[in-house]
Design a protein around this nucleic acid. Structure first.
Lengths: 143, 143
DNA sequence: CTATAAACCTATTGACTTGATAGGAAAATG
DNA sequence: CATTTTCCTATCAAGTCAATAGGTTTATAG
């Protein structure tokens, strides 16, 4: 299951996508809007910065902003950057140690197919698809 | 991610499906074949019995056997009986407590759709599909 | 130039989960 | 009635999760 960390990461990214994506937004503002503790948010932001999903600027007038356009992020890469695992079982992780039974394992192809399914699903949804100000979420009558 | 418990439960069910499904197989035999500690297996077996997936018979000559035909089990129900959670996020569990944001949550429909996807996938595969002696796994030339 | 605002970094905590072990009680049979 | 087997409850160490805390560095505003 996707943990709090991954869900928060998504919310933070959506929040940034809904702001003016050119200026730096301080953590404090996002924290207030989202109702998430500043300190806990910091840790997640750090991960997102490390994976180059967002840019951080220190000092007065600083904050965070997206490093790309919202439509150029997939939900999958955001979740993975936050440390979530899209693989369904441990033996399919890149650094998995062999269980010694893989040649005769009757379940491995099932896990593989589900792994592909999950990957394709979450990599097929963009941040813009989720952000409230994106075109596809505005009712047609308001366009 | 599916944990050891769920993966073991699947292996135990597959093992039982590959034996003569009418007689009771003692835990010791399955444990030996599968290389899983007897004591740990016991706990998993208990869950499977409680959910009526298998029958246990005590005493000499006892053991476990399937309570239905292999083709009448889905992988999904086996995993859930072992305590695995097919829902992708905590807020979609039956006993989930509200986060207070669901009316404006931009991600909830994404999780719902993925939940359906996962459920359909694992409920669409039967135990017979995985067990080695099932018809569909035997090469055509040997039929 | 200096006070301040902000990101950055590292460590720690308590609660919970996980995988596993242990010792025995109850039941059925040969 | 001795043996085999499931059934039951408790316990354990290691790990993960969500969160908190305190301090350091960097950049800007005034």
């Amino acid at each position: 299951m996707i943990s709090t960390k991954g869900r928060y990461a998504l919310r933070l990214m959506i929040d940034l996508a809904e702001q003016d994506t050119d200026i730096y937004t301080p953590l404090k503002d996002i924290s207030k809007r989202q109702g998430i503790s500043e300190k806990y948010m910091e840790l997640i932001m750090k991960e997102l910065v490390k994976h180059n999903l967002i840019k951080g600027l220190r000092g007065k007038g600083g904050g965070y902003k997206l490093s790309r356009r919202p439509q150029d992020y997939s939900v999958g890469e955001i979740l993975e950057a936050a440390g979530e695992q899209l693989a369904p079982v441990a033996c399919m992780l890149p650094d998995a140690k062999s269980c010694g039974r893989e040649k005769s394992c009757p379940t491995i192809s099932m896990w593989e197919e589900f792994g592909r399914l999950s990957h394709d699903y979450f990599y097929g949804i963009s941040l813009a698809d989720l952000a409230g100000n994106s075109l596809q979420n505005i009712p047609k009558t308001n366009r």
